[in-house]
């Protein structure tokens, strides 16, 4: 047991950004919003969190700033897709590309700095100290699950994702609800980036997120839009990510570049296997996902 615990903790650490970003995107997609800009929002959140932490010396302020930066990036997506009625697919791609450019630009002065990282906190005597971000990701899972399936507001949000026209006819503020879902997704992505920048690495390099935003997007499909499967999937990917470090420690003579490919290849394989059950995907996908919706009156 005791020798497995550190491995479990590292897996949870690797899974945490995927949980934050994946749950945020899940809520957005449940409301019918497909935001492909996850990677960009994560990078903007990460660079903001690192810059603010580094300049102010406060990791809390940095983390909050990271989440807010994710929200601001998501707001850009919201204005374009909900008010300018832009193609959500193209807007998401634009956000992903813009996030890469913006974070590289802002982060140039921070490249060689290092932060202390977040110290694990002892919550209960007898249990190992726990990273607050990891704890936060578990709490977020509970909150998202409870909200979506055990509150009236969650039901309304899912109704908007299934049929915005019907929800609109019933008098629900479709655009407002989608705004909320988009901003929540931005906060999740921003937090995921903040975790990477101030706790997991903790430093800033260009392209810090290394495709985790796209993996989180795949995770939501893989999870067939169910929160607990996002959690399970994130731990699976966390395990694959950790494999590359432990593979070397175990003396496997595999070049590090090949081990580095593992998370991406695993994503492709899992997606391919999942997609063969296209019925499960079609039955669970929010019906209005990624469609432009415009209230006529």
């Amino acid at each position: 047991m005791n020798e497995w615990l550190p491995i479990l903790v590292t897996i949870m650490g690797a899974a945490t950004p995927l949980i934050f970003a994946g749950l945020g995107e899940l809520v957005a997609e449940k409301a019918g919003v497909l935001n492909l800009g996850l990677e960009g929002m994560m990078l903007i959140g990460a660079v903001t969190a690192f810059a603010v932490s580094s300049d102010s010396g406060s990791l809390v302020a940095g983390t909050a700033a990271g989440a807010l930066a994710g929200v601001a990036a998501a707001a850009l997506f919201g204005v374009l897709t909900l008010h300018c009625l832009a193609n959500p697919m193209a807007t998401g791609l634009a956000l992903a590309l813009f996030g890469v450019g913006l974070s590289a630009f802002v982060g140039r002065d921070y490249v060689s700095r290092v932060l202390e990282g977040v110290k694990p906190v002892e919550l209960l005597p007898g249990l190992p100290p726990m990273d607050l971000f990891i704890l936060g990701s578990l709490l977020l899972f509970g909150a998202v699950h409870g909200f979506l399936y055990h509150t009236r507001a969650g039901l309304v949000l899912r109704a908007v994702g299934e049929s915005p026209t019907t929800a609109h006819a019933l008098g629900y503020p479709v655009r407002l609800i989608r705004w909320g879902a988009i901003l929540f997704g931005g906060a999740g992505a921003g937090l995921a980036g903040a975790f990477l920048a101030v706790d997991y690495t903790p430093m800033w390099v260009e392209g810090l997120t290394a495709g985790r935003g796209w993996i989180a997007l795949a995770l939501v499909v893989f999870a067939t839009w169910k929160p607990w499967r996002v959690l399970a999937g994130a731990y699976l990917f966390g395990g694959v990510t950790i494999l590359q470090f432990h593979g070397q420690a175990l003396g496997l003579a595999i070049p590090p570049q090949f081990m580095g490919m593992l998370p991406y290849l695993a994503t492709i394989i899992v997606l391919a296997v999942m997609s063969r059950r296209s019925l499960a995907i079609r039955a669970n996908a929010p019906a209005s996902l990624g469609q432009v919706w415009h209230p006529v009156f």
């Binding site: 850009l76 374009l80 300018c84 009625l85 832009a86 193609n87 193209a90 807007t91 791609l93 634009a94 956000l95 590309l97 813009f98 996030g99 890469v100 450019g101 913006l102 590289a104 630009f105 140039r108 260009e206």
Partner: peptide, 22 residues
């Protein structure tokens, strides 16, 4: 200025286009 400003311009161009496409 950092050469990364290119990425910023490229992203801004696409965003501006999407807005104008309305």
């Amino acid at each position: 200025l950092p050469a990364a400003i290119t990425g910023l311009f490229q992203g801004a161009l696409l965003f501006a286009l999407l807005a104008c496409d309305t």
